[in-house]
């Protein structure tokens, strides 16, 4: 739900319209993203089950290591990227429970 801002939305002005809810809207989505991270991580880490490594003849440990650690690094990077914005949200007391 956004409302066009009458004051600053001048034609030709490249800046995005300034309206109050924008920042807190972003933050809310960041909170959602943080909640989704474990689901993403669990899904990615459970994928090797689909490979059936125990049944196949190929040696799976080496590629398995690379895959597991790649997912790990992605998770850490995403969490680190979210942490700054969420810290600010905590500082501003924008912590709805739901």
């Amino acid at each position: 739900m956004t409302l066009p801002d009458a004051g600053t939305g001048r034609r030709g002005d490249r800046r995005p319209p300034v309206f109050l809810a924008r920042r807190s809207y972003r933050r809310r989505r960041m909170m959602d993203a943080c909640r989704m991270l474990p689901i993403l991580g669990a899904a990615l880490w459970m994928i090797p089950i689909l490979w059936h490594p125990a049944d196949t003849a190929a040696d799976d440990t080496a590629p398995g290591i690379v895959y597991l650690f790649a997912v790990w690094i992605v998770l850490v990077a995403l969490a680190a990227a979210l942490s700054r914005g969420l810290t600010r949200a905590l500082e501003d007391g924008e912590d709805e429970g739901g």
Binding site: A42, P48, P53, D59, D60, T61, G64
Partner: peptide, 24 residues
């Protein structure tokens, strides 16, 4: 090291889905 892993007794990954999910 990766080559050694390929050659080691644990080269194959005996993944048991139940334990994999359960232990996580």
């Amino acid at each position: 090291v990766l080559a050694k892993i390929e050659a080691s007794p644990i080269a194959d990954w005996p993944l048991q889905p139940g334990r994999w999910i359960g232990l996580t």
